[in-house]
Amino acid sequence: MSESTPNGERQPRTGKSLKAQQRRHEILRIAMDTFATRGYNNASLQEIADRAGVTQAGVLHYFRSKTLLLASVLQLRDDTDTDQDKERPRGLAFLQHLVDTMRRNAEREGIVRLYAVLSAESTTEGHPAQDYFRDRYESLRADVTAALAEAHELGEVRADANLEEAANAIIAVMDGLQIQWLLAPDSVDMSAATDRVITALLADITAKHT
């Protein structure tokens, strides 16, 4: 997602000096934590400004609007979550990548909370992150479906089941586990549960084929 909004706002100012860049990054990190804790609708620019030790005009100097600040937070979230230089693993390797991602997420509570809060909140009418999450889920469904198809082509899985349906189930399990983990981290092993569900799903679609 680019650092622009659906209504065509310009990109945020980055600042030329090192001090300006550090201040912008500090505001962005505080906004990420505030949105994760309170949601986009309940958080205010004034609250973010107060936590950053600047005026509301100071926040707007870097981001111009609350909507653009949210776009920048989501971009930072994506940059933190993925390695842009790595090619997507193929076949079952991608499904293992999902398990590994859940293991890493257990060490990134803020990122997980941000995703859980904003993805749920984005289902409300007119939410500025709605297109972001709609596109993200569409892309994730496509990646998981492609990985299952590749596993079949590579001879790793024998399947004639609805792969898109299987992809939806995997994504639903991952998102549901994250919410359970946020509420009771000592009771939920996200990576182990994700691995178990994927293993069971693969066994199921293979059995249907045979």
Score class of each variant (00 low, 15 high):
50 D>S: 08
20 A>N: 10
48 I>T: 10
62 Y>P: 00
32 M>K: 04
20 A>Q: 15
35 F>G: 02
22 Q>M: 08
42 N>C: 05
47 E>C: 02
34 T>I: 09
54 V>G: 10
52 A>E: 03
45 L>S: 10
43 A>P: 15
71 A>D: 07
31 A>R: 13
50 D>Q: 12
52 A>H: 01
20 A>D: 14
44 S>Y: 03
59 V>A: 05
57 A>D: 14
30 I>V: 15
49 A>Q: 03
20 A>R: 07
54 V>L: 12
26 E>H: 14
32 M>H: 06
52 A>V: 00
32 M>Y: 00
55 T>I: 12
51 R>L: 09
39 G>A: 07
50 D>I: 01
64 R>C: 01
35 F>A: 05
67 T>Q: 15
62 Y>D: 04
52 A>C: 13
24 R>T: 04
36 A>N: 07
50 D>E: 11
40 Y>I: 00
49 A>I: 05
32 M>Q: 09
38 R>Q: 11
37 T>S: 14
29 R>E: 15
45 L>G: 06
57 A>T: 15
57 A>Y: 08
29 R>A: 15
16 K>D: 08
26 E>K: 14
54 V>N: 05
37 T>I: 06
28 L>F: 04
48 I>W: 08
16 K>E: 14
65 S>M: 09
71 A>R: 11
45 L>I: 12
21 Q>C: 02
25 H>I: 01
42 N>P: 00
17 S>V: 09
24 R>P: 04
34 T>R: 14
30 I>H: 00
35 F>Q: 03
61 H>V: 07
21 Q>Y: 01
54 V>P: 03
39 G>V: 07
32 M>T: 07
36 A>P: 01
40 Y>Q: 02
22 Q>W: 01
29 R>H: 05
21 Q>A: 07
24 R>N: 05
21 Q>W: 00
50 D>V: 04
63 F>T: 03
29 R>M: 12
34 T>V: 15
19 K>I: 06
29 R>L: 14
69 L>V: 08
59 V>H: 04
22 Q>D: 04
41 N>S: 13
52 A>Y: 00
30 I>Y: 02
42 N>R: 13
48 I>K: 14
55 T>H: 12
35 F>P: 02
59 V>D: 04
51 R>P: 00
54 V>W: 03
33 D>G: 00
66 K>W: 08
42 N>A: 13
64 R>P: 01
50 D>W: 01
43 A>H: 14
53 G>V: 10
28 L>M: 04
22 Q>V: 08
24 R>L: 10
19 K>N: 09
31 A>V: 12
66 K>F: 05
25 H>A: 15
53 G>T: 10
38 R>E: 13
33 D>N: 04
33 D>I: 03
36 A>L: 06
22 Q>L: 09
67 T>Y: 10
46 Q>V: 10
45 L>H: 08
68 L>A: 09
61 H>S: 08
38 R>H: 14
17 S>K: 10
48 I>C: 11
23 R>M: 15
58 G>A: 13
66 K>L: 07
59 V>C: 06
64 R>S: 14
47 E>K: 05
26 E>M: 13
23 R>V: 06
58 G>N: 11
58 G>W: 03
32 M>D: 01
58 G>D: 06
43 A>S: 15
29 R>V: 12
42 N>Y: 02
63 F>R: 00
49 A>V: 06
67 T>F: 05
56 Q>F: 00
16 K>V: 09
46 Q>D: 11
71 A>I: 03
69 L>I: 06
48 I>Q: 10
68 L>I: 11
23 R>C: 04
25 H>M: 13
67 T>C: 09
67 T>L: 04
19 K>C: 01
